[in-house]
Design a binder for these strands. Structure first.
Lengths: 261, 261
DNA sequence: GTTTATATTTGATGTAGATCAACAAAAGAT
DNA sequence: ATCTTTTGTTGATCTACATCAAATATAAAC
């Protein structure tokens, strides 16, 4: 474990567990765990293949234009050399279209993967931006590729991992297309992120909301104003509470009811 | 090549090339083509691994409820034993949610894959329904899995294929979320299907539209009435023409302009 | 052929959410 | 501390699309 003391010293530290997600709760498990008893030689947790690195948040050094906040871990269209698992913190994944318009395509919490959906391809499909002081496990592709040629089981595990991941991804986005009302959309989103964050925090009724309203609205395909109104409404109706960065879900049942409409 | 003479005899046959898509234009190529010169033993085009089968359309035998039209090639949640490539015809892919609501998650034209996104998983993620008299190449997973253990190159090819596929899929759906207006959405959709169909027909300005308005609307997340209105408007504006089942794009440029808004 | 069912188009109306605009509250910068 | 910038909230209006409803066209059944 590397040091993340900076994070601990911050004002918001009370709400945030001062620990990394452990390997047992990480989606990379299928890749990292050594395969079969005879194959112990291939242990991807050795530093040869993987490396834990810190990503400090802090806004981009150049506040010229409406630049993205946070720090880029990797960048869309650049050569892909490694994939990542989030150990602590939060990331947003964004794509820029030809016109340069930013579209948030997802968020990642501890235990979740980034760029795995482009494994063995040439370039990253999206950029990853830290919204927080974060840490990640970096898995280099070249040695992974070499290893997997030696160990067919590893490769089958990889394929299973990737297909499962892409299925989850698809469900996440397909659900949102359903053209539910913005309220349902938001209810579904809040439940989703709290549930995912719970793997890390242990509590699926609350989350430290490091994601800006702008990014949530962008991701959901609604306007910031609309998002803000619905959040206010949810608070009036005692469905949620927001104090500073802490979001609490007050009634999972009613939110679930709203979500699947 | 198996016989597809039934199809040729149909009234709509003039508009439709009476041939299968050839292997050169098929997305399964990376899997089917024998690998390396030394590995000729592994030729997946042998009948051992793949098999071409016919799927007659014709509506479902039970017109009781608002049952899906067409014939199911495989069914969501059933055990996955094979993946498929479309040789001729059209398929729609549909998912049912817990409430039993049908959601169209995609269409497949000749040369495109089905169920590959669940390869090595237990069950199909969606059902595939033939909208046409169609034919497919069936690739059995068990022998494919066995083979790929022998040939790491095949497996790397598979991973590349899958990740590319899932990227294209994602782009297709993400583009639709962009919450463009229904007009942009439809323009993008028409361009997309014509372009994909062109691999088969050779002409990217027209398509034999076997997909119902209902299914298009469902896929795009708009109402049938809205779809119908926009189609009428596009015809008035000489952007497209519809005669029977034949859809012709009259101005690719103006449609493209509309599409990326 | 006729009849029945299904698919598609068109019209009238209501509403959710976009848009424009102003204001309030944080967060950085000096 | 003040000043500036960014981020979030609330109000007023407008429009695209959903919804309800009815007419027409197409396809299946007899």
């Amino acid at each position: 474990m590397t040091q993340a003391n900076k994070t601990v010293n911050k004002a918001t530290a009370e709400q945030k567990p001062s620990r990394y997600v452990d390997c047992e709760h990480c989606s990379m498990q299928a890749v990292c765990l050594p395969i079969g008893s005879e194959n112990h030689a291939i242990d991807l947790t050795s530093n040869y293949l993987t490396k834990r690195i810190e990503v400090s948040a802090g806004r981009n050094s150049s506040p010229l234009l409406n630049q993205v906040t946070g720090v880029k871990l990797f960048e869309q269209a650049k050569p892909l050399t490694a994939i990542f698992a989030v150990c602590s913190g939060t990331f947003k994944l964004s794509q820029q279209n030809e016109a340069g318009i930013e579209k948030i395509v997802g968020f990642r919490f501890p235990g979740e993967l980034m760029a795995e959906d482009a494994l063995f391809l040439e370039t990253y499909n999206y950029s990853a931006i830290a919204l927080d002081d974060s840490s990640v496990c970096q898995v280099f592709v070249a040695p992974l590729s070499a290893c997997s040629k030696l160990a067919p089981e590893l490769q089958q595990n990889l394929i299973k991992l990737l297909t499962k991941q892409s299925y989850v991804q698809q469900r996440n986005t397909q659900a949102l297309i359903g053209k539910k009302s913005a309220e349902c959309l938001l209810a579904a989103f809040l439940l989703n992120i709290c549930q995912r964050y719970a793997k890390y925090s242990g509590n699926e009724t609350q989350i430290e909301l490091t994601i800006s309203r702008h990014d949530i609205a962008n991701f959901l395909g609604i306007r910031r104003e609309t998002l803000s109104r619905i959040l206010s409404k949810f608070q009036q109706e005692q469905l949620i509470s927001i104090k500073g960065k802490l979001l609490v879900l007050l009634s999972l049942n009613r939110l679930k009811q709203l979500a699947d409409n």
